[in-house]
Structures are given as structure tokens and as C-alpha cells.
Design a protein around this nucleic acid. Structure first.
Lengths: 361, 361
DNA sequence: GCAGCCTGTGAATCAGATT
DNA sequence: CAATCTGATTCACAGGCTG
């Protein structure tokens, strides 16, 4: 092994990531963040209800002939990543259901040892326009060590805990997608179809690296990993095939102002009061389908159905909608409007919401 | 194929789930919920799929072999599940990072088509005591159809939207783990180590099945699937190897009070309402040939012809086609687009459709 | 200046029946 | 079986414009 070879710190190498990784000295990087192509298999075009066109990810780099071809590619880059990783280093991979199961299985096969899977919950995902699925509101990250017996991996437990208002950081992270001013544009068009938000990399690098560590990103794209690494005082190595992305990334990273070491303290995340849908009150059995609700003056009555909708004569819908329709109002807060009978007492359904909220904390 | 064979509805069959599934008629169940074992690598020790312990000294049973055996087991039960599933049926599988990537890859290999992956976020997960990882606060579900070209799968989109206060249901679900009174005990000890909460199955069955559907659970355990199926008016078939779990499950399900059919009615989609051709509106004299229609902002006009087609300058065709062509849109819902004049009021032609539908009942 | 309205958009495996 | 036709369908933000 030639660890004497100098690492190309804080630069972007152009070319095939597998060849490039194999040209780097083995056991030389502290962490790898990889955002490989997802191999989405889209068929037709998709339009929003207003007939506008959805700009899908149809880049040539996301096209693979078959699962077999994708798997072979995955195995190659993972093996190269394993070689270049220090024994106490870790690998992060992000993906969606299109590819993440294949990537996860393959990295287990190669001997990587999964430490956590982490869910990035998007605050503002693209909705499902045709009403045929659940909103695809998350992506999955896998965090793993080089092998089962690896020791000494960096995990800044306390920094993460502080970041999370002194509560142990969970495996589900709520973060917005990359939009607004952060989204890089070239001639008014997005510079990269799948630019990741800096907040995501901020949390990953804070959790799993230390100042001065070397972070390798084999699918560098628009350079989010490099930008955040520079900001946080980590060294990056970016690998990228496409000239146009490298150009964008270089300019982007150049503009980043590194934080001074004493300012590398973390910002606290805002915690939002969780919204409680009425359906979850029914789902959890706090009220059951068939039960009758009424308003405080008992002028209106409605029956609860299994899906959390209410029925009153020929009207059905959510607690809010039915409350509004019965009163002839344009809106209604169903939580305070509706009551149920508890041993002869009329009780607002809002107490059930508080009960659910209590369970959520 | 012997579809004449009677299904053992609402019962638990004891034995190996693969053999039992293969003994059932093919294409006979509407939905499968599977919570397969993932006991092979917990706490760092290796276990076979039958839960027997591997002594690392005499058994040259390495990690690779462990995965290979688990994969073979996974492939077998998934293939059996695919056979017994109706063409428009769906499969749900739940797992953690220990097994879900292997299961997901294998089901893709078998041709299942993923519709969503869904994250069960736990309100009250077990904290990570050693502080070396993120709190493992979620499990992953995969929802898939039998193959890529499957059609007609049940998804009660509107019911789930109501359940979620009129906002489309997302792929991340926040639900408590099974505890308290719901947790089954035998002699003061947990009856089953991985008993799933009823709220989870409630949401799954509400989303992906209809009343009277047949739900198969090949890893029945303490019978959560059966209990919720009975409550929601679905038929269940449970497969389970262990006598002790069957006993617990039977007693549990016996106590469940099924909801009455009227409370099980759920918010339905407009797509399920009978189709009314525009021609029949004209035919019945609700509109007459020669009448003029216009859009809500009165930018476009068209004339009704005797056959129910519209004419606008040089364009003619259905209400949808003419609406689309006039706007330069790729499609248009003519029912909501066009209006007619009723005593000075602009009225949507959709009210005429509703009138026809009412007459049809 | 500000509140309110309108427009644009994001890693998407996004229909089903009839001819 | 393929092409055609009917007609159902969106949430959270950011940014710009209007009154």
C-alpha cells in the first residue's frame, strides 16, 4: 500500500468514480458520503392537475438497462469505497425505494456493517398528483462501518443531542428539500436535478466527522458535500464525471465562508407542535367507528366512520367540513365543535387530541 | 389450478408458512401482510432463520452464509406469496435495517413492483443506551403489487385523506409502539416479542383492502392482523408455526367486536361513481341542442349539438376535447369546465350529471 | 410598507375503461 | 392488443405582483 501518495484534498477530480477511487491510497479517508443514481424507472410524462408539466429526473446518468447492470455498478463502487475507507471510517448512502434496497443488500454482502438507517422526512415533498399512492415524503440513508468488527467510528452523540434540544437524536430527520436561494441555477434552470439540501449534509458531517477529517463524495454533482465540508472545517474530495457540474460546484464552494473553529457550534432545530389528524384518534381506538358526536348545544349530531370521516344525514367528510356544512358556515374547527358522551358527561373531542399529543412527546 | 378449493377463512393454520401458502389455491387472496423474522444478527450473534443459535466455533457459519440462508428463505416465502396473491392484490412487508434491504431487493428480483415504502415512526422508541448510534425510532414497510403491469389494486386514497384531515396521506406514519393494555401478556411476560400495534394494521387495512377482502398473514404471531381484520370486516387467514402464539391469537381475536358494516363505509373516490355520458344529458332534455356553454370566466364558448358534441368555431368533439383544445391544454374535465345559463346564473354542467345519477337510483 | 393574491416547482417508478 | 377516450388529481414554500 502506498499511503505515501498525497491525497488531492479540497479538490474535484473529473472521471469515473470507480477508477478514481481505486487510484487513491487505500484506508485514507474518514468518511464517504454517496448519493448514487437512483435508477428511477419512469414511464410516461406526468402533469399536475393544473396541466403544468412535471420536470422529471430523466438524466442519462440515471438510466440503467436492468437491475443486474445496476447491481454490478453498485458492487463496483461500494468495493472501491470500502478499499479507500480507513478502518474506523464510515459510509453514508442516500437513496429512495427505487434503489436503496439493492444498495443496502449489496453493502451487507460486501461486509459493511449497518449502524443505522436514517429517514430524511421532507417538510415539503412533491405531492402525488394522481391520487394513486402515498405522498413520497422521505428518502432513506444508510450509515455503516467498514466491517462488522470495526471500532472507533466517529459519532458526536452530544453535539447531536444539543442540536436536538437535549433529546437524543432519532433516526428520523425532518428537513426541507433544497429550494429558494440555495438551489443553484444556470441560465434560470436548475443546475442539477437532484441537489441535496445543505442542512442534510450539515447534520451528517456534524454527527460522523471531526474537524480536519477527509470526506469523500464519489457522486459529487453540484457539490453540496464540498460546500458544507468547507463551512465546517472538514476536507473534501469530490469525484464527478460531468464537466458542467464540476464548474458549478467549484464556483459554489469558492463562495463558502468557513466557520471559525470557535463558531462551529450547532444551531438548534425548531420543534413544531405536531398536527394531529382526527383519523388517528379513531385509528388508536380513542373513539370508535359508530360513535355519535354532537355540538355543545346538541343541535347537530354526526356519526363517526372507520376512516375518521363523519356522517350526518346526507353529508359526509372531515370533522371540520361536516361541522361547517351543518351550520351553513364556510369553516369550522371540528376539534372544539364536536363532543362525545363519556359516562353521561359531554366531553370535547379536543381532549382526545391532547391525549394523542401527549403520547407523541 | 384448483380454485375450487375452499379458503380457510378466519382461521389460523399451524405449520410452515411456505408449505401452507403453497397448499392454498393460487390467486386467491386480496392482500398479504408479512412481518418476517429478522433474528439473524441481533446483538451481534448469528442465528438461523429457524431461530437456532449458531456456535461460531464449531459451525463454520459466517456472515455470508447467514445472509445466503436468509435470502433463500426470503425468496421461498415471497415466491409462495406471489403465487397465492390475486393479480390485483398487494403485499405489505415490514422490517428493520437488519433485513428490509434484503427483502426489498429480493421482492424486486421476483418482479413485485414497489408502490411505496412507508416509514413507521415510533412515538416512543427504545432509547439507545450506549449513545453510539441514533435512536432507532422507525421501521420500514414496503407496499407492492404483484408485478409491474398489475392494475386495479385497492387504494382508498380518499379515506386516508379524510383520516389525515383532508391532506393527502404521506409515506411517514407516526404511531405509538404496542404497549399498555394492548400488549398481550402470558404469566406477566410479553406473549410475543414483536407484537405490532393495532393502529398500524388499522391504517394498512383501511388503505389497501375493502370490506370482505381476504387478508393473509404468513407470520401471524400474536394475531394483530387477525384482530384488526375482524374489527374492520375483512377476512383473515393466519399462518403460524408455534402452538403458543396460536393459542394467544385465537383468544385475542375471539374477544374482538366487529364494527357494523354501515360504520365501515369509507369515503369513496369520484372515480367509483357510475359514468354518465354527456350525450345522455342532452338526450334527457336537461340541455337542448343549440344551447351555448361557456367556461367560468367566460373566455370560451361552445354550442351543444344533438349528439352531445360541442362546436366552437372550427373545433368539434366531446366536452372534454373541445375544452382542452380551446385552452391549448393536454386534457380537460369538461364536466367542471363548462357552464350554462340558468335564469341569469352561471351553473356548472356537473350539476346535470348529478341529476342524471340521482335519477339512475 | 405590508398584506394578500397569483404563479411556479420539487429524485415520480402517478388510470382505467372502451373501441 | 394497441390506440383512443373519459375525466380525476396537489402540498409546502418561495418569489413576484397588486392594491
Amino acid at each position: 500500500m502506498s499511503t505515501s501518495k498525497k491525497l488531492p484534498l479540497n479538490s474535484i477530480l473529473q472521471g469515473d468514480c470507480i477508477e478514481l477511487m481505486n487510484s487513491l491510497p487505500e484506508k485514507s479517508v474518514d468518511m464517504i458520503f454517496a448519493d448514487p443514481p437512483y435508477n428511477m424507472q419512469l414511464s410516461g410524462e406526468l402533469r399536475r392537475p393544473d396541466d403544468s408539466h412535471v420536470d422529471a429526473v430523466d438524466d442519462h446518468w440515471d438510466q440503467f438497462e436492468s437491475f443486474a447492470v445496476y447491481d454490478a455498478f453498485t458492487e463496483e463502487w461500494l468495493a472501491a469505497a470500502q478499499r479507500v475507507l480507513k478502518d474506523d471510517g464510515t459510509l453514508w448512502v442516500i437513496g429512495s425505494y427505487h434503489n436503496i434496497f439493492r444498495v443496502g443488500a449489496k453493502l451487507q454482502d460486501l461486509g459493511f456493517w449497518i449502524l443505522n438507517d436514517v429517514i430524511w422526512r421532507k417538510t415539503n415533498p412533491m405531492p402525488n398528483f394522481r391520487g394513486t399512492r402515498f405522498t413520497n415524503a422521505h428518502e432513506t440513508l444508510i450509515w455503516c462501518s467498514k466491517d462488522r468488527n470495526a471500532k472507533g467510528m466517529t459519532f458526536n452523540y452530544d453535539a447531536l443531542k444539543v442540536m436536538n434540544d437535549d433529546i437524543q437524536m432519532r433516526s428520523d430527520w425532518l428537513l426541507p428539500i433544497c429550494s429558494g436561494g440555495e438551489r443553484l441555477k444556470v441560465d434560470g434552470e436548475k443546475a442539477h436535478t437532484t441537489q441535496k439540501p445543505e442542512a442534510l449534509l450539515y447534520r451528517i458531517l456534524t454527527a460522523a466527522t471531526n474537524q480536519g477529517d477527509v470526506v469523500l463524495d464519489p457522486f459529487f454533482g453540484s457539490g453540496t458535500t464540498g460546500a458544507v465540508a468547507r463551512k465546517l472545517g472538514r476536507n473534501y474530495i469530490g469525484l464527478e464525471r460531468e464537466e458542467k457540474y464540476i464548474k458549478v460546484a467549484k464556483e459554489r464552494i469558492r463562495k463558502v465562508q468557513p466557520l471559525s473553529p470557535e463558531n462551529l457550534e450547532v444551531t438548534t432545530s425548531k420543534r413544531q407542535e405536531p398536527r394531529v389528524p382526527f383519523g388517528s384518534v379513531v385509528e388508536r381506538g380513542l373513539l370508535s367507528a359508530g360513535q355519535v358526536l354532537f355540538d355543545s348545544r346538541k343541535r347537530y349530531r354526526a356519526r363517526v366512520r372507520a376512516d375518521g370521516s363523519l356522517v350526518a344525514s346526507d353529508i359526509s367528510g372531515s370533522i371540520h367540513k361536516v361541522g361547517a356544512r351543518l351550520q351553513g358556515a364556510s369553516s369550522c374547527n371540528g376539534w372544539t365543535f364536536w363532543h362525545f358522551d363519556a359516562e353521561g358527561q359531554s366531553v370535547s373531542i379536543d381532549v382526545l387530541r391532547q391525549q394523542v399529543r401527549a403520547e407523541m412527546n
